Amino acid sequence: MMAARAVEPVNGPFAHAPRGEVRPDAPLAGLTSWRVGGPADWLFRPVDRADLVSALADHARHAPAMPVTFLGLGSNVLIRDGGIEGLVVHLSGVLNERERLEGNRVRLGAGLACAQAARFCARQGLVGGEFLAGIPGTLGGALRMNAGAWGGEIWPLVESVSTVDADGQEHQREPGEYRIGYRSVEGPEEWFTGCVLQLEPGDPATGTARIKELLRERSRTQPLGLPSCGSVFRNPPGDHAARLIEAAGLKGLRHGGAEISPKHANFITHDGAAQAADIEWLLHHAQSEVERRFGVCLEPEVRLLGRPRPMDETIEGRQ
């Protein structure tokens, strides 16, 4: 990791340089699974939980008007070509602790990849979390949106969560403090830093075999070899977004370097030459066509972050 950069106390996000890396005008495309998007005004990679907490407290005192965005593996976000205003906190590779607790419980950090969490639980002889292997993000992102796959969702497993607020204050919270729905979580305006999951006892070999089976099915049905964010839209009640998009004749539709995947219509992929605006155009076009033909308004599962370039302002206005 690079040495901490001396931050200008007037213009930077911090009055005192944290221990982690701080960079201005930092490229973000390489930190997302779509591999597109503009830079962050400021990027901060904490070295550990204490560094994160103290840096947020410093930021709250020094630059409270500067917005803060948390980024994990970047698998469920589309960062627009104009980049992200303010401070981006990158947690991938940080807060990745995993610990077996008494009973059938585990404590996991929010920066841990969901696939790593699934494998850890299986090796501990705990089952019920195998579906996490199919979620291409971190536990923090999964907690934020109640991510799920193959019929499983994360919040039914949650015993408690740890969070940090914009002032750098840490909290322990119960599931009852949140309103949990399908790909939806509403609650305190804080960022998740970890969780305790309650699972069931099982055979490690069986759990590991189940994970391998699910990953084979994912590879068979999804375009994993191309940049994407995973599923773009939530499934509407009683239907599937992919079916509706395909029925609207949009499977394989291209715009710029981006394409609605011929393999799975709820994926937008690209050939390496796309811009975020190309992907966003396809997203809005799919919404418009499905609503026009079937009267169904598809809700994005992906989060759109940041500023469009001036030429893309018409796209922003269509949201």
Rank of each mutant, 00 (worst) to 15 (best):
W150D: 13
R293Y: 06
R309Y: 03
Q319G: 03
L298Q: 09
A3E: 04
R254T: 05
E21L: 11
R35S: 12
H59Q: 15
L126E: 15
V127C: 13
R243N: 08
M1A: 03
T163C: 07
N76K: 00
H62Q: 12
W281H: 06
E159I: 14
L31M: 08
R61E: 09
V53C: 10
M145S: 02
A273C: 07
V53M: 08
L214T: 04
A149D: 03
V89I: 08
V161W: 06
G151N: 14
D58W: 07
D48N: 15
A265H: 09
E21C: 14
S228A: 07
R80V: 10
E130N: 13
V68F: 09
R183G: 04
G202F: 03
L52S: 05
L282C: 05
T206D: 02
A55F: 14
P46Y: 01
S219T: 12
P39W: 11
R100S: 10
G83T: 02
E217R: 07
A57L: 03
A40P: 10
F120T: 06
P9H: 00
P227E: 00
E21A: 15
V89E: 02
E153S: 12
N76F: 01
A50Y: 08
P223Y: 04
G141V: 00
V47W: 15
G72I: 00
L305D: 00
R19I: 12
T138Q: 06
G74F: 04
G272I: 12
R292L: 11
A117G: 03
T208F: 10
E130Q: 09
W281C: 08
A142N: 14
V47L: 09
V94W: 04
R49L: 12
G38A: 08
A142C: 05
P46M: 01
P223T: 11
R61N: 15
G72C: 01
D203P: 05
V296G: 08
G128D: 05
L71I: 02
H264V: 01
A276E: 03
P136C: 01
R19A: 08
P18E: 05
E200G: 11
A277C: 09
A276Y: 11
L87E: 10
L282Q: 02
A55C: 07
L199D: 06
P18Y: 14
T221N: 09
R80E: 04
L139E: 02
S54W: 02
A209C: 06
R293K: 12
G187V: 14
P300C: 07
A273N: 08
E21P: 09
G129L: 03
G181Q: 02
V164E: 00
I84W: 09
A258D: 13
L126P: 11
V127Y: 09
F267N: 00
A248F: 13
A241I: 00
L108R: 01
G202N: 04
E189G: 15
E299T: 12
H59K: 10
H255Y: 14
M2F: 14
T69K: 15
I268T: 14
Y178H: 10
R49A: 12
L305R: 04
E299S: 14
D239F: 13
G111M: 02
L91W: 07
L197D: 03
A273T: 15
E97S: 05
L253V: 13
E189Q: 05
G137Q: 02
R210T: 15
D48H: 11
A6N: 08
G187Y: 11
L95T: 11
T208K: 09
